[in-house]
Write a protein that binds this DNA or RNA. Sequence first.
DNA 1: CTGAAAGCGCTTACAG
DNA 2: CTGAAAGCGCTTACAG
Lengths: 347, 347
Amino acid sequence: MFRTVTKCSTIKDVAAEADVAISTVSLVTNRKGYVSPKTTTRVLQAARKLSYSPRRAARNLSSGRTGNIGFVVRSDHFTRSETFYSRIFLGTEFEADNQRWYILLTTIPKEYVPIEHTPRFLRERNVDGIIVAGKVDPAFFTELEGAGIPVILIDFEMDAYSAVVIDNLGGARAAVEHLLDRGHSDIAFLGADMSHPSLSERFEGFQLAIHAAGESLNPARIIIEDKGEPVYKTGMVLSERLFSCYPTPTAVFCINDALAFCVLDQAARRGLHVPDDIAVVGFDDVPRAEQSHPPLTTVRVYKEQMGELAIRYLKEQMSDLSPSQLLYDRGSHTVKVPTELIVRASS
Amino acid sequence: MFRTVTKCSTIKDVAAEADVAISTVSLVTNRKGYVSPKTTTRVLQAARKLSYSPRRAARNLSSGRTGNIGFVVRSDHFTRSETFYSRIFLGTEFEADNQRWYILLTTIPKEYVPIEHTPRFLRERNVDGIIVAGKVDPAFFTELEGAGIPVILIDFEMDAYSAVVIDNLGGARAAVEHLLDRGHSDIAFLGADMSHPSLSERFEGFQLAIHAAGESLNPARIIIEDKGEPVYKTGMVLSERLFSCYPTPTAVFCINDALAFCVLDQAARRGLHVPDDIAVVGFDDVPRAEQSHPPLTTVRVYKEQMGELAIRYLKEQMSDLSPSQLLYDRGSHTVKVPTELIVRASS
DNA sequence: CTGAAAGCGCTTACAG
DNA sequence: CTGAAAGCGCTTACAG
């Protein structure tokens, strides 16, 4: 059984229907130049009637733009169970849709080998801008260098690239101050992968808060696994270490929620009560934080918002360019997105 | 400070460099027709020298294809902490890259409102094929109907659409038979959202195994929360119910790993030992299954492979079409991907 | 086996 | 304010 595919209508059809030149249709659909209200209406009606939508490929070819934005994230980050990066992606997708852009999501390996792993959209010059989410191999940036494509980083900083980052320091500080306010003075720090700027900043915030309170750091309470990523596996190792401290600290600030959940888990298994025996605070505010036992006090990060910001920011950066001839050498324009302490039952 | 952007080389440049017609360059880059080895080499060298890559937009416009595949998934599925769908996506991305396609990932809301939520790639006809991962609102399919674009479903079945699905029944059956083999006869079933075909099939598999063993179903052991999705929150409710059974079943088959982790958690909190007091089996084999306490026996689903298959399958379906004129009415071609029981310490 | 030419459906100066 | 025309960079019959 066969079925005919209705041919899509083109700008020509609309022009004929509205009895104008195709250039006029183009002006109307792109909201460019000035077209009289009367003509505009006629064109719009014709377009609607024929359910016309400009063909991407044609538009791209003649305009020299692609209408695509590359979204690059490490594959191991992308499939992490904390849905941090997928939420950022969701934010970019939302805002990109407003801008009528397509997002080309591409994952790259943790260890990036230049030619071999080059995203195809770079080779084919199929993007107008690029968003890099999270920490990626520096080798990737060497490749990006030559491309002359606007780039915005999210939750990562590198050279003079513009970035949308988290106020990690402020967030961590607020979290620890909250614990101090509750009367805790023996507060442990649980961390991993401190080479990640976002994570080391959280450590800084921790230290600042402790010092600001006139307390001093107790090295025995700084529990860091530098080789591991801050995920479940590492969290289990770290919480073992935490609970083998004697005496057990009365509170612990975890570098992210994933680690905090492990602490909750281990505490329960040891028959310890949270927050009475030990108060626990995380960072990120992933959905599960609301539902853990007990619900987790944590620092909320506005992930979707970061994605949205990155797109808007990219747009700005792109319109600054005289199309495809010259590029401003990018200056470091960094937007820091505020966090919010969410107090729940774990502290 | 300004920097000149190197203009990309075009097919013309390559033709000039190799001293052939541009059509010859086209034939070579597309591995089409027959070009003498000698000329081929010359063209290839020229292309390499100028680091030429055909521009997407131009190719698309003249060929009438877009080179894009739409990947549709519900946003709540996409951000679930079990990285099920992101792994499927990774599989499609991998295989799409082989086919030199781009994947346009788009999330749609759980409750789909036709015009309002229509993915832009549908309106702009910016995809050659579509992959739908997971259960989505039927309203979405009504829209897809008219588009005349090849579609493959993953982990979902609907009307006569082709699909790549999991052997849920076989997997569940194997899991339960494994428990029976270990001498369990009082096996509970933990499930949610049974309107999802994949999940109800797992229930069927459970029943089949029980019956095949000559046992009969004990309704008190069928613990289902039909309103909830099979995620952490629901799992906590379900495991409460499980452990309020008296006597506690000696084993439990959970509809997915997310629920199984909740059982492990609750068991630990109640001082019960897994698997001695209760054996636990899951389904999916998410990464965390290897690292839970104890590691989880579960049914492995080859997620990346499903994504790859879907792309290959889509390619087949696309080449069956006489380009953009006629479509075979799609017959139901369903590929069932086998599962594998992974026995770990929880059973 | 290779080349000349039309054409894909738009955008964009440039006239008027 | 609107139209005629060139051109974006390819692919694809069609000649030869």
